[in-house]
């Protein structure tokens, strides 16, 4: 009676770019649901978990990691061609991740400081979110992504509805949970007011400030919060550095870092705008 109950199992791929593997591990961390999910979804590409390989086509592909090498650039375009729905998972794929903090610095200097033979290291001048290069159909935020949100995404995929992924501030979840604001009651700088919820307001529950791993929420007034941190006694570059974490390259945070300072490898107060590779091959 109701349409679309017996469609074939969707083909899912998991693809990794520059990342720590933690977000795809979250798929394996769905312990209670993992085998049920595997019965309903055809996991055709997931090298961390299975030796079966497929280069597509995919109904849905989950992309972890930032685009930071020429090879990854080729990969992401190839994956986009093969994927009906491309979903970025985690802070690296959605915002560039921690490695995007190098985008303010001189890439060659960075490379030379870490590698004895920088000439052998192939990497792009910047590490950027996937959406800077190809069209992205959906995203799961977080460093790492949240298991409940991942399961909700899968459930929505299987039941044909929109995933219920609120874009409100961490504060909303924090207050529903009955936590006391660490910023107001203890003077601890907290990115919760400008950060998207999804973690369950984890850090304030552990007596520390949110460090923004789900990235800016909609219309994040990061500049006002940065000014408040300074008013609370932080030096401007320190205030900027609080934003220069796992999602610091996402625009409203990026602007605060550029304005206040705090990017690695850049003297305080001298932060230029981050480098951008533009959109070399077709763009979004």
């Amino acid at each position: 009676m109701v349409r679309a109950t017996s469609t074939p199992r969707p083909r899912l791929g998991v693809v990794k770019l520059a990342s720590c593997d933690g977000c795809q591990l979250m798929l394996l961390n769905l312990e209670d649901a993992l085998l049920s999910v595997a019965e309903r979804i055809d996991i055709v590409e997931f090298p961390e978990a299975t030796s079966h390989r497929s280069s597509g086509p995919y109904d849905v592909v989950l992309v972890e990691g930032a685009v930071s090498t020429p090879e990854q650039l080729e990969t992401i375009h190839a994956v986009r061609r093969e994927a009906k729905v491309l979903v970025t998972i985690g802070a690296c794929a959605t915002a560039g991740g921690i490695q995007a903090m190098r985008n303010w610095a001189n890439h060659d200097a960075f490379r030379a400081a870490v590698y004895a033979h920088p000439e052998y290291v192939e990497s792009l001048a910047t590490a950027q979110p996937v959406s800077d290069y190809v069209k992205v159909d959906g995203e799961l935020r977080g460093c790492p992504i949240n298991g409940d949100q991942l399961l909700e995404f899968v459930t929505a995929l299987l039941t044909g509805r929109r995933a219920n992924l609120p874009d409100e501030a961490v504060c909303a979840a924090c207050k529903r949970a009955g936590r006391v604001c660490v910023m107001v009651s203890q003077g601890i700088p907290c990115l919760g007011p400008v950060t998207m919820t999804g973690c369950g307001a984890l850090c304030p529950g552990f007596d520390r400030g949110c460090y923004g791993c789900f990235g800016p929420r909609e219309q994040a007034n990061a500049a006002s919060l940065g000014r408040q941190f300074v008013a609370m006694g932080e030096a401007p570059a320190e205030a900027g550095r609080l934003f220069a974490g796992f999602t610091g390259y996402a625009p409203p945070f990026r602007d605060v870092i550029t304005e206040f300072g705090g990017a690695p490898g850049v003297p305080a107060g001298h932060a230029p705008s981050p480098a951008s590779t533009g959109t070399p091959s077709g763009g979004k």
Binding site: E168, A169, C171, A172, K175, R176, C181, G192, P193, V194, Q219, N221, S224, L225
Partner: peptide
Amino acid sequence: RCLACTNCTA
């Protein structure tokens, strides 16, 4: 100035 963070309403 407003962060639209919802703390006032909560």
